[in-house]
Design a protein around this nucleic acid. Sequence first.
RNA 1: GCGCCCGUAGCUCAAUUGGAUAGAGCGUUGGCCUCCGGAGCCAAAGGCUGUGGGUUCAACUCCCGCCGGGCGCACCA
Length: 576
Amino acid sequence: MESVEQLLERLVTGVIRDRIGADAPAAVRPCGNPKFGDYQVNGILPIAKVEKKNPRALADLVAAAAAQPLAAIAEPPTVAGAGFINVKLKPGFVASRLPQALANPRLGVPAASPARTIVLDFSAPNVAKSMHVGHLRSTIIGDSIARTLRFLGHRVITDNHIGDWGTQFGFLVHGFKQEKLDLASATDPIAEMERVYRKYYGASEADPSIREAAKAELVKLHADDSENLALWKKLRDLSMPAFERVYQRLGARFDHTLGESFYHPRLPGVVAGLKGKGLAEDSEGAVCVFFRDVPALKDKPFLIQKSDGAFLYPTTDLATLQYRVETWQPGEIIYVTDSRQKLHFQQLFETARRWGHADLKLAHVTFGSVLGEDDKPIKTRSGEPIKLGQLLDEAERRAMEIVEAQNAELPAETKREIARVVGLGAVKYADLSQNRINDYVFSWPKMLAMQGNTAPYLQYAYVRIRSIFRKGSMEHGARSMEPGAVVLADPAELDLAKFILRFPEAIELATEDYRPNFICSYLYDLACKFSAFYEQCPVLKAGEPTRASRLMLCQLTAGVLRQGLDLLGIQTIEQM
RNA sequence: GCGCCCGUAGCUCAAUUGGAUAGAGCGUUGGCCUCCGGAGCCAAAGGCUGUGGGUUCAACUCCCGCCGGGCGCACCA
């Protein structure tokens, strides 16, 4: 189903081609200011510049010629400013689109064409350590991108590239051998692993022999020593359930969890391959890729093998990329990590291009740090990273306090569910509603506020709509509606109706640069417009045909809210 | 030293990728409960978009220089 914006773009671009002979887009955008109309054509000015013509005259010509093709959709277009063409939708057209959106499984959002295969790499916690706030943004943002791309019909493969082969295992293996611990009986195996790691890593700073021992154990592990391998496997397997619990709470799903260790056998081949192609060379005993022809990277080598023969993060990432291409033939791979890794991915992508993956789209989706109220990266009072599980517990606890204060009479089970959905939604929404490239300040009161651009506000708007249907004894609204039966007489009705039809635009913006905050701001505006309508227009008490028409607006609003929140990984509830 | 990112209302943030008069929330001030959930709604005040140049019909957005803040840069990941 074509969106309103796409429809206008297609028609006006056709007029520009036929009447001016210019092969240029109409560049239709929503009007910056509603007083001008609903959509504006921005494409005339650039054309006038190229053709060296008067922009106003050109705009007059196109506007006049567009009146006929747009007759069923909009009032006759008008020209304003330097050469903008303003388009105001006819209420009758808006009314006719609503039943189509209602009947459409995607609420009017066009399916991606062509659908592509996209590998999405996000979250990536380290084995033997708890997930902490550092993994929050990657997981939440990555999951939202996955949901959105899937919604559009793409084949999305989510792959959790866990850190299960790094230097931490040297200390862990050494420590566990020293202490002869039996992890199977531990109530919190990860806490044990963290304790052992901290103890031996800490001790190594004063005692180099411990560092040497740890390094030796790591070398043995990487050489497939059976005892170390068995111990490593145990540590890894005992870490997974804790990750799983967090993902289940967050609603994040991975199709694959192929960690660093999976690629271990491929690493020598990667280095040999790159050297063979002349892309990598020996330097100071190590093997590096140099980018002498890229000014920004010319003094920044990409190390793929250490002078002691060990492989590095870049080597694994290259092997991973190669495996993904061989296995899934993706058109694109997206990595969701914090912005500090920018240089690494620049180098990785540049190497991949030279390596023969020039047609593969590679995207590094970066984000800033989570800061505490003191504007420093968030930590506990003792300086430890905040554990993700504890953070989610606190979100639910704080939401529960609010539910208790507002709706103490609800059954305990219902209150728990509300607190869970609202608490987790608040954490996610606070993160996703901001431009991901900036750092963001974590604040409980702000994310749990019931007013303003927050998850609880949106969830509340949804609840109010559902309440109307309950009150009217209609659990499910109408599934279809005759286009002629829609009445949009009140300005609040028309305003809401037009905005419902703009859901596709929000999705497109959010997808273009992997920016979920565009979905958030659309949903917030939608909720605000619904509130205005709700105050202004009685639904259940209205006479027919207005009542049925307003019920449909309610139903569509609820549908878009629920779907939009779902794309953010946020649930809705029936009451709160 | 080199490179990347950020600087927008008192505070926290938007701004559809170069479009018309830069928008929200919090906070402040003032209104709205015979009415579908007031966890709500409406309104007012608040800005030289860090700064100085440049490009353009048009700049928060692009280019150059400063000033502030953050991050990264050879054997961690």
